[in-house]
Design a protein around this nucleic acid. Structure first.
Length: 562
RNA sequence: UGGGGCGUCGUUCAACGGCAGGACACAGGCCUUUGACGCCUGGAAUGGUGGUUCGAAUCCACCCGCCCCAGCCA
């Protein structure tokens, strides 16, 4: 496992080759180009790691460019969240914060140039007519009757479009390429359309906006991008990307496509994620169940775990579905090294140590992180009445059950060996109400002077000293591995995991947890990794979020016995 | 059935004409004051058929399967 080294892949091979050929004087320039129409998710993290990672590895530069060519969909709220997320992941665009909207004037000049050379024209067909004229996948399209307008007329019309003299939809600017091309993107693509909505940065300065195809490649070119990495669905657009660069005679950047990330048990489509937010299926873009960067952050994921994940999954052109267990693995190994160990009881069951003095209190030593000695030790208070996890007691034991049950001895972590002598039960509900034990004073700290072994060690908190808190247990948002798949004809909304959030109100925590702050990761021993919910913290409410459970072999044994 | 792309263990990435390898997942074992972590072991793949070659996952041909494209979205 190496979180520093990124895997070698076909893109790096292309770059190696280009460097060998001294293609751009050995310079490497990449960019991460999000559209500010939603929050970033783990799929974007893949692209961020790739683009910034390659720039770093090759001594090049990577910039952050907002692809804001459609004012109807974009908002500055998203710009801010995207900047925050990229920064949080640990990447630095330095002074290279760009917006496609910064190039609107330049792009307009490019359009005029194409028009002047007879390579673009104003079309006045309606949207439906344009669709009809485009032809189909198998049949060629036919030329628009407006295709042969004069340069002068085109320039005049285009200027009027810009000045707001026409209504939306009445005219568009199209590149004049080839209506019979087998590639539909080359059938005179629309490159400018009239949109009267105010733009988040240029407000109402423009009434026309370039389309993706006319903006993206040129922006790359203006920024001196050498390798423009994008996802597979743009493969068909590459001939167009190249066409504009060639016809405009500008800096040549090369578009390279790779497969977007798909993750099991979740969805990674901005449109659908946005739908979850709008329809209140989740609490917001940063709901800890969301695969967004902000959701993962709130859930307790670390930037390192996400970057490591991105390096593990590799880059290729295969349509793939990454098993979410790999992400879970990445956060577990990171937190195992970093998280403070504490004891917390989620579903409390009262335990009384009958032979322990009524008013004695002891401060016992506990290790903060067995993986990192430098994290030191702490004191945990012990007394006669404790809480243990309900799951850690059974009325009837079995050979494989190592925990507390009548007659059985277990270790209370860092405390004493105790033997269960009995229990009381609410007969009406059948629920165990109290467990009685005796302790062996010679086993203080959890070791036995006579060398006798116990198989089970369980965690506990002292009733008198513990603090109470709400804990939220998160699980996968969907109950099937491919909620997005349309093969069965069902919508992803039919596959919500009904247990993706369980709120536990009166959990008992060891008192050291009194002083907590957001973005500090804890391991509740034997349970999982938890952190303070930063949003609730802002509201002066302490709530713990479960980032991920520990691997649970015992649960597997039980499942396999069913 | 037009165009573009992709097929390697269950999943994912590698192997670039020379012993198909890693990671996750899974199974078993060891260790253990977390049924965690760690360590060891194991099962497990070249879509198919031909061809070229001393030798093919790799080159060629044909076939099969999957993904993307007919926004004035990106």
């Amino acid at each position: 496992m190496n979180s520093e080294n990124s895997s070698h892949n076909f893109i790096r091979e292309i770059i190696d080759e280009d460097i060998k050929d001294n293609k751009h004087g050995g310079k490497i320039v990449t960019r991460f180009p999000p559209e500010p129409n939603g929050y970033l998710h783990i799929g974007h993290a893949k692209s961020i790691c790739l683009n910034f990672g390659i720039a770093k590895e090759y001594g090049g530069i990577c910039s952050l460019r907002f692809d804001d060519t459609n004012p109807a969909k974009e908002e500055s709220e998203y710009v801010e969240s995207i900047k925050e997320d990229v920064k949080w992941l640990g990447f630095d665009w330095q002074d290279r914060l760009y917006f496609t909207s910064d190039y609107f004037d330049k792009l307009y000049e490019f359009a005029i140039k194409l028009i002047s050379e007879g390579k673009a024209y104003v079309d006045s067909l309606s949207m439906e007519q344009i669709r009809d004229y485009r032809g189909t996948l198998k049949e060629p399209g036919k030329d628009s009757p407006y295709r042969s307008r004069s340069v002068e007329e085109n320039v005049e019309l285009f200027e009027k479009m810009k000045d707001g003299q026409f209504n939306e939809g009445s005219h568009v600017l199209r590149a004049k390429i080839d209506m019979s091309s087998a590639n539909i993107n080359m059938r005179d693509p629309v490159i400018y359309r009239i949109i009267k909505t105010s733009h988040h940065r240029t407000a109402s300065k423009f009434n026309i906006y370039p389309t993706y195809d006319f903006a993206h490649g040129q922006s790359d070119s203006l920024e001196g991008v050498t390798h423009s990495l994008c996802t597979l669905e743009f493969e068909d657009h590459r001939p167009l990307y190249d066409w504009f660069i060639k016809e405009l005679g500008i800096h040549v950047s090369r578009q390279i496509e790779f497969a977007r990330l798909n993750l099991s048990f979740t969805i990674l489509s901005k449109r659908k994620l946005s739908e979850l937010v709008k329809n209140n299926h989740v609490s917001g873009w940063d709901d800890p169940r969301m695969p967004t960067i902000s959701g993962l952050r709130r859930r307790g994921f670390t930037p390192e775990s996400i970057i490591n994940f991105c390096n593990q999954i590799g880059v290729s052109k295969n349509n793939s579905l990454i098993d979410i267990s790999l992400l879970e693995y990445c956060i577990r190994i990171d937190l195992n090294k970093k998280a403070l160990r504490v004891m917390a009881v989620l579903n409390p069951l009262k335990v009384i140590i009958d032979n322990y003095p009524d008013d004695l209190e002891e401060q016992l030593d506990a290790i903060n992180n067995p993986e990192d000695e430098s994290m030191g030790t702490r004191k945990v208070p012990f007394s006669k009445i404790l809480y243990i996890e309900r799951d850690d007691f059974r009325e009837q034991s079995s050979k494989k059950y190592f925990r507390l049950s009548p007659g059985k001895e277990v270790r209370l972590r860092y405390a004493y060996f105790v033997t269960c002598t009995g229990f009381t039960k609410d007969e009406s509900t059948g629920q165990v109400t109290e467990v009685h034990c005796t302790y062996d004073p010679r086993t203080k700290g959890g070791s036995s002077p006579d060398g006798r072994k116990v198989k089970g060690t369980i965690h506990w908190v002292s009733q008198k000293h513990c603090i109470e808190s709400e804990v939220r247990l998160y699980d996968r948002l969907f109950s099937v591995s491919e909620p997005d798949s349309v093969k069965n004809g069902k919508d992803y909304k039919e596959y919500f995991n009904q247990d993706s959030l369980k709120t536990l109100k009166s959990c008992k925590l060891e008192p050291s947890l009194r002083e907590v702050r957001p973005y500090c990761n804890y391991q509740f021993e034997r349970l999982g990794y938890f952190c303070i919910d930063p949003v609730e913290y802002e509201n002066n409410k302490i709530v713990f979020n479960r980032t991920i459970s520990l691997r649970d072999t015992w649960a597997k044994i039980q499942d396999s016995n069913k």
